[in-house]
Design a binder for these strands. Structure first.
Lengths: 195, 195
DNA sequence: CGAGTCGTTGGCAGCGTGTCAACGAGAGCC
DNA sequence: GGCTCTCGTTGACACGCTGCCAACGACTCG
């Protein structure tokens, strides 16, 4: 079934898509260094040289995969119920935890992907930037950008850690994770301390 | 001066130390993949084979470096001035920021080192465990371990993010970083929300 | 059905890592 | 002081992986 069909011609976009799809599977369960271009080619049913032809570099393909993963969650967060800041924050956190629970594999793959890489960091930073905008618009539309956007971006670091405590280590259950995120997000949005 | 002295014999422990010291310098300013064993050998003034002789693997040497970096901050945190929880928390954060400022290169190297690596994660998790103990003992000795240790560990994720906002991106100044960490740490230690 | 286009392939060159047998610096002994 | 023995140290070898490139041939157009 579905013969290998070596050398069959394909539309460049479709071929790119096949390669990215295969790479997505491999990088989701093996760290970057453990995946060779040979593996990537085999998974896509293609000659190894084609990887370089389309993406130039193994790293570039990896960046493409990361880009796909981080731009998936662009679904709307806007429809939050009216109410107090606490209620709205709780609803936002619930929505987020639902999303994480649904895509746990991919979420963890991104979080533990390959931080420390300058290019990967740039992509993640870009995604965080967008997410921070959404959070501020939804929960603190009147807060000035200056400290608060950076505060929210920092908050995402805690979000990743807490996700791993919940999904990987099991030291937090979902309710405990929710409580933590709500507590901290409120603290981040309300600057209490005197400098 | 200080002739190369090729092939000079040295006590194994001293030699290990020299290699680790050189590796520490290199990994502090270049990502893992960008440092070759040849570089490591040259930096230590030694033949390349000796790296493998002492550490077996480039990765093992890297893990050793990470272990050193994460266990350095084992100096005492105990001497916090008496006072309110807010004052003590502020003092702890100040102490921490001083340490980060002093070793910024190394701190960033660890934080952005190679997350996603199973072995590195294990070392970082171990270090976080110890640090969480210290924080709890110093600031909330009566809090039950169950949710609070995991909450503090999650907090360290925000600490890393905030450090990068401060040192790398410059979107937070030191005062702003301090305010954020104090606000969040207090929120983490005081569970406000109702589950 | 023949010719041209371009998606695709396989092999080549270079680099980096891990292994190993042999060398020789330094210590101990006579 | 010279000899010997230990073991820290070296350099070369084999292998795997990446990026590059010229040739191949599948598909299209006239």
């Amino acid at each position: 079934m579905t013969a290998p069909a070596r050398g069959r011609r394909l539309d460049p976009d479709a071929r790119r898509e096949e390669i990215v799809a295969g790479a997505l599977r491999l990088f989701a369960e093996h760290p970057y260094a453990a995946v060779s271009t040979t593996d990537l080619a085999r998974e896509a049913g293609v000659a190894r040289g084609l990887i370089n032809h389309y993406f130039g570099t193994k790293r570039a393909l990896y960046l493409e995969v990361v880009r796909r993963l981080t731009t998936i969650p662009e679904v709307a967060v806007e429809e939050l119920p009216p109410g107090t800041v606490e209620e709205r924050t709780g609803a936002a956190v619930d929505w987020f935890l639902d999303a994480v629970d649904r895509h746990r594999g991919l979420w963890l793959a991104v979080g533990t992907g390959a931080a420390g890489d300058i290019d990967v960091d740039a992509i993640l930073a870009e995604a965080d930037e967008i997410a921070a905008d959404r959070v501020l618009a939804a929960l603190a539309p009147d807060a000035p950008d200056d400290p608060y956007r950076a505060r929210v971006r920092s908050f995402f670091g805690l979000v990743r850690s807490a996700s791993r405590e919940w999904l990987v280590r099991g030291t937090l259950d979902r309710a405990g994770t929710r409580a933590l995120l709500v507590d901290v997000l409120l603290a981040v949005l309300h600057r209490d301390s005197q400098v």
